[in-house]
Structures are given as structure tokens and as C-alpha cells.
Write a protein that binds this DNA or RNA. Structure first.
Length: 492
RNA sequence: CGGGAGGUAGUUCAGCCCGGUAGAAUACUUGGUUUGGGACCAAGGGGUCGCAGGUUCGAAUCCUGUCCUCCCGACCA
């Protein structure tokens, strides 16, 4: 009868899937590796999208839209980028079906409708965008070009997980062109700051800003900046990336501009993106065994009001008060729902909204009306209290802010407690196996060492933190000299 | 792509070994009692048992093929 949720400690994967399915965010579909984002999950994504979109626009970016199909010849123009994505591309080879003569009522691919050139379903849009930019950029006066697109992309992953790695996912990808290297790097870093700001202040998910090593770098980038978050099972999640692309794409697509001295130069590029994967991060960073816990600032519903009554007469009295409250909530721009559906009983509703992670629940009955109070339950701590009705909307507004802050502090405390220093190989292995989380350790800077460590422990270098403390040390694997520590972790 | 589990009512699953009327819980509909943490009683509707072949008088059950999903691994810019 009850919708039991798998406990976090039982099986983390099952717990995670349950949270998403029972919390009403998404559902499996008949399509391999894809998911349906349900209205509640999509409302969450819309809130996140709106905030990010405003942040992009406030920093001078504009939106545009480019095709989902990329001709193979364009796709392969930037060789490293193409090679990096080659193994996970969906490819359109035909454009027509026809009736299958051997199976009545069934269809088959029409062999006569083979495309002369295959189309790649975009796994990322650098190729089509830079091919377009070539026609848009002639002079330094055309720069910088600061464009973002909200789109879907397809990456044919072997193994998928709801939100974290689906065959198709929604994201935004920014693609900018600049006159100088310095300006492009500033843009890359500016976006990284923006992502970190969003993750921490809106999603209440603390992140570490850093640089990827050569191994983990985006294919075709000179430098990849990232934000890394920590999940409750001790695994790291790459939550967003911002790439300095140098002149790689400008050269591959021949995008040149005349500078003030009328000299032809290749432009400098950046690209950056965050995706619906952030929702997976949100789920794993905050939820508990009773369901989702969504941060108030982006929660589709911030407050739910549940009436408790026996008779129609009682219901009417409660209604009058609640309509007043709803009006006040709306004036405060608080997303509120009055669930007076008589089909479900209060206890069922309580459980349901906990599964959905609604930050604040208000329950009101005639008893409360008589005492001029209301029951306030907060999702993050699962505590309940009786609060005076007078001024309840302002009280709730402050409470939402407090919940937002509390969620961030709690996640940050957990994250900080799970950054462990390892000074030698034995410590390193022991921490990975017993404690998980980030391990801060010296590394000699070579790809060979990084690969070897990954082979031995499955841990990868998540990032070299920005503004990292410089200290001399010895690589935990090779003993070679090292100038700074890097963060290792097992990751999603 | 390798290993494992699975596909039967809207959902979660039992039945399958040992072939013989299609089951439970929950959800849904109706009526009644209820309502401060996932209510109760009664009645009712709902499934070509993933798909395609085969064996058989007879297949959810046995055999072959095939598709799909989930988990673990490999892969993951």
C-alpha cells in the first residue's frame, strides 16, 4: 500500500531511481536510454533554465538556434573534437520508409532513399555553429559574438542513468567568438563563475571550481574549466564545464577577421554548457529516504497548503482563510498550491508532497483557526511547529530563505568533511575504499600516472582547483616531484 | 558490447519447476462511513500473459528465435 522508498544505505542506484520516479520528475520510456521528463520535473528544469537564461542575458549573451543535424563532413572538420565524440554518435543514413513487401502492414527502410552524405545527430554543436560563424564574422566590429542555444543533444552511451546520462538530454550550450586570447579566457572564466553561482546560490549545491587535466579535457579544447559537486554516496559529479577552445575551431572552419590594422586573424573561441544532469545532481545532493528535497529558489512548488476538515461547513471556513493566504503568497511571488482535493486524505498528501520535495507544507484545520495558528512543516529538517496565523506569509518567506541556506550549509558541511588529504599510496587507496569523497593528493602531472591510478582505483582527477595552494610534495604513485595537490574521486 | 535479473491488470508483483477456467495487493468506478501522518466496508470494471514461430487435443507455463527494460562491468568528450 505505502509507496516504500528504497533506503539510501540499501542500494544507492535503486534509491536514486525511486526518488525520481516516485517524486514525479521523470519516467522510463520505450526508447533505449531515454527518459520522459514529466510535468513536475520539467517545471523544475524551466525554473533552472529561466534563472540561467537571465544570467546569460545579463552578461551580454543572446539566444539562437542551430540545426540538430550536422553533415558528416562538417562534423569531422575539427579532428580532435570529432574523434572524441565518434564512438557515441547517432547517424541518419536514410530519409524514407516504405511498405515491406514480405511483411504486410510493416515498414522497412527504403534502400533507394539513402542519403548521399550521412547526417550526425548533434552530440554537441561546435561544428555546425562554427561553420555558420564563418559567414557572420569578417571584422573586429563583429566581435565578440556571444551566443547561447537551448537544445537537445544525443550521445549514444553504452550505459544510461536517469538525468545523469541519458541518450538524449536537454542543455544549453554557449559558443562565443573573440578578437583576443585574453578576452576569450576571461569569458571562459566568467561563465565558470556564473555556473558556480547558480549551483551554489540557486541549487544549494556546493561546487569546486577547477581545471581539467589533459586526459579529461573536452575534445578540441585548449583548457577545460569545470565545477565539481559531491553526491551523498561519495562520488563526484561534473556539474558544468566551460571550455577555452583557442583557435582550434576557427582554424578548422576558417573563421578569420580583420583587426584594426586590417590584418587577418583567426578568432578565439569558448564553449560552455550545463544540462538536465544538474537535476540528477540536485536529487543526489539533497534527498533523503522520504523523498526529494528541492531548494526553495527553484522548486516548482514552494509551499503547499493542506486543509483538514470533517464537514463542508468546516471546509468553507478554512477556504476563506486560505484564499486570503494564497493572495498574500502570490503578492510575495511565492509559488503556492492549495490542495483541497477531497479524494486524498491529509496523511496521504503529507507523504506525497514529501516525495516531491516541496520545501514548506502548511496544514490548517478548524482547531487551528480557533487558536489563530497554522501547522508549518519544513521538508529539509522534517520538523513541524505551530505558528501564529497573523503574519504567516512573511514568516514563510523567511523560512524559505532559511531552508535554502540550510540546505546549502548542510551539503557544504558534508562536502568539506569528504575532502580528505592523502600523503601516500596506502592512505589514498584506503580513503577511496572506506570513506569516498574527494581525495586531495600530489600527482606528478603526467597522463601515464593519471591513467595508471584510474586503472588501479577507478578514481580520476576531478580537477585541479583554481587558486590552488602551491606546495612541494611527491606524487602518491610514482614519488616524482609535484607542485600542488589535485582532487581525485570516483565519479559519475 | 560482456555478465546478471526481468517483461502477466494503470502500478508493484504471484502463478511457470510439474501444460488444463487469468490471480493478489494497490490504483480506478459506485454507494456508505471517514478525514490532525499513506482510512474502512461493500459492490463493480479492467489483462490477445513483450513479439514471432514451434511442440501439444490444449501453452502465461515446454522449445527456438527476436525485441525491450533494469542492475553490474567496459565506455563516458
Amino acid at each position: 500500500m505505502a509507496k516504500e522508498l528504497t533506503s539510501r544505505s540499501q542500494d544507492y542506484s535503486q534509491w536514486y531511481n525511486d526518488l525520481i520516479l516516485k517524486g514525479g520528475l521523470a519516467d522510463y520510456t520505450a526508447v533505449r536510454g531515454c527518459m520522459v521528463i514529466k510535468p513536475y520535473g520539467y517545471a523544475l528544469w524551466e525554473n533552472m533554465r529561466d534563472v540561467l537564461d537571465k544570467m546569460f542575458k545579463d552578461t551580454g549573451h543572446v539566444n539562437a538556434y542551430f540545426p540538430i543535424f550536422i553533415p558528416k563532413s562538417l562534423f569531422e572538420a575539427e579532428e580532435k573534437n570529432a574523434e572524441g565524440f565518434a564512438k557515441e554518435c547517432a547517424i541518419v543514413t536514410h530519409y524514407r520508409l516504405k511498405n515491406d513487401p514480405s511483411k504486410p502492414g510493416k515498414l522497412m527502410v527504403d534502400p533507394e532513399a539513402k542519403l548521399e552524405e550521412e547526417l550526425i545527430v548533434r552530440p554537441t554543436s561546435e561544428a555546425i555553429i562554427w561553420n555558420t560563424y564563418k559567414g557572420w564574422i569578417q571584422s573586429y566590429r563583429d566581435l565578440p559574438l556571444l551566443i547561447n542555444q537551448w537544445a537537445n543533444v544525443v550521445r549514444w552511451e553504452m550505459r544510461t542513468r536517469l538525468f545523469l546520462r541519458t541518450a538524449e538530454f536537454l542543455w544549453q550550450e554557449g559558443h562565443t567568438a573573440h578578437a583576443t586570447k585574453e578576452e576569450a579566457i576571461i569569458e571562459t572564466e566568467k561563465i565558470l563563475e556564473l555556473y558556480a553561482d547558480f549551483a551554489e546560490n540557486w541549487m544549494a549545491m556546493p561546487v569546486i571550481k577547477g581545471l581539467k587535466t589533459a586526459n579529461e579535457r573536452f575534445a578540441g579544447a585548449e583548457e577545460t574549466y569545470c565545477i565539481e559537486a559531491l553526491m551523498q554516496d561519495g562520488k563526484a559529479l561534473q556539474a558544468g564545464t566551460s571550455h577555452f577552445l583557442g583557435q582550434n575551431f576557427a582554424k578548422a572552419f576558417d573563421v578569420k577577421f580583420s583587426d584594426k590594422e586590417n590584418k587577418l586573424e583567426y578568432v578565439w573561441a569558448t564553449s560552455w554548457g550545463v544540462s538536465t544532469r544538474l537535476i540528477g545532481g540536485l536529487v543526489m545532493a539533497h534527498s533523503d529516504d522520504d523523498g526529494l528535497i528541492l531548494p526553495p529558489k527553484i522548486a516548482p512548488l514552494q509551499v503547499v497548503i493542506i486543509p483538514i476538515f470533517k464537514t463542508e461547513d468546516e471546509k468553507n471556513k478554512i477556504d476563506i482563510k486560505v484564499y486570503e493566504l494564497i493572495k498574500e503568497f502570490k503578492e510575495l511571488s511565492i509559488r503556492v498550491k492549495y490542495d483541497d482535493n477531497d479524494n486524498a486524505r491529509p496523511g496521504w498528501k503529507f507523504a506525497q508532497y514529501e516525495l516531491q520535495g516541496v520545501p514548506v507544507r502548511l496544514a490548517i484545520g478548524v482547531r487551528d483557526l480557533d487558536n489563530k495558528v497554522i501547522e508549518v512543516a519544513r521538508r529539509d529538517t522534517k520538523t513541524k511547529s505551530s505558528v501564529e496565523l497573523n503574519g504567516i506569509t512573511n514568516y514563510t518567506k523567511k523560512l524559505l530563505e532559511e531552508i535554502q541556506l540550510n540546505m546549502f550549509n548542510r551539503a557544504k558541511l558534508y562536502r568539506d568533511e569528504h575532502i580528505t588529504i592523502a600523503n601516500n599510496w596506502d592512505e589514498f587507496v584506503k580513503i577511496l575504499d572506506t570513506k569516498a569523497g574527494f581525495v586531495s593528493a600530489h600527482w606528478d602531472g603526467s597522463s601515464e600516472t593519471e591513467n595508471k591510478i584510474k586503472e588501479l582505483t577507478k578514481a580520476t582527477i576531478r580537477c585541479v582547483p583554481l587558486n590552488n595552494l602551491q606546495e612541494d610534495g611527491k606524487c602518491i604513485l610514482t614519488g616524482n616531484t609535484s607542485r600542488e595537490r589535485v582532487l581525485f574521486a570516483r565519479a559519475y
